[in-house]
Amino acid sequence: MMKKQRILILGSSHTGAFQAARHRIAQAFPSLDVHYFGLPGSAYFHATFENGIFRAPEKRQRQFDWMDSREIDVRQFDRALFVGQRFAFGSAMRLIMSYDILEEVTRSKRPLMSEAAMSGLLEALIAQQVEGLITKFGRDPRFSFLAAPYPLDRSTLKGPAQEKALKAVLRKETGVTWGLKYEEIIAAEMAAARLDLVPQPLETRETFLTTQDHFSRQPSSAGVPDDEVDNRHMNADYGWQVFCAYAETKLEIRPLPIAEAEEHETGLS
């Protein structure tokens, strides 16, 4: 029997979408042995990574129900997908929305910034994030880094948890162009740093910078207290889609068709 490839999905709360899809992943990718390790955002970003051991900070606020350990030995895995890199998305959107670009035609009474300055500042912002990844995780060809999902499309509507900066960027005539530029910079900085990037698959997006609403882990915000409305975390379908994209592009494995996967599960194949 061929040895299964060991895959680790490790990251912030966005790991939840993958964990929720774990049965489907296990069924459709029988050649993979996938493990999940997630921490709340601040704990993830304050966790240490030394000698291959990823360890939650001592004073961790809370732990996900499905987590039974506070550390994991990443060396045991053939590949690791680090989930939830934000690449300063919020800061980038606020920067883009705060200025009219000198070289562009549209004026909205915002201060002016040259295209060169806007690009230069975005590059510096992303470079700082990428440097952080290198400092923490080093360069390991087994590692891939997945950007956190863009907020749900509904997050740009008026209401609780509204993404105001994102909304302003999308309303900007050249907002999508700058969104594209933001992604190009991430790709370029990651490539320059020799780190492997997994961008959010296009088929999960509504606009270039938002995620389709049906991927929400909270199908509706109706009846949800304002401070609990979540427009950023996705469901198992999202985890599944993204994992498939990762498997296809990085591991060169496609999911088995459902019937075949079920047969495999029941031992009929």
Partner: peptide, 15 residues
């Protein structure tokens, strides 16, 4: 005129 966002100082100063 400076963006009220935490940005690397060297990049801000460059412009």
């Amino acid at each position: 005129e400076t963006p009220s966002i935490a940005l690397p100082r060297a990049a801000l100063n460059r412009y």
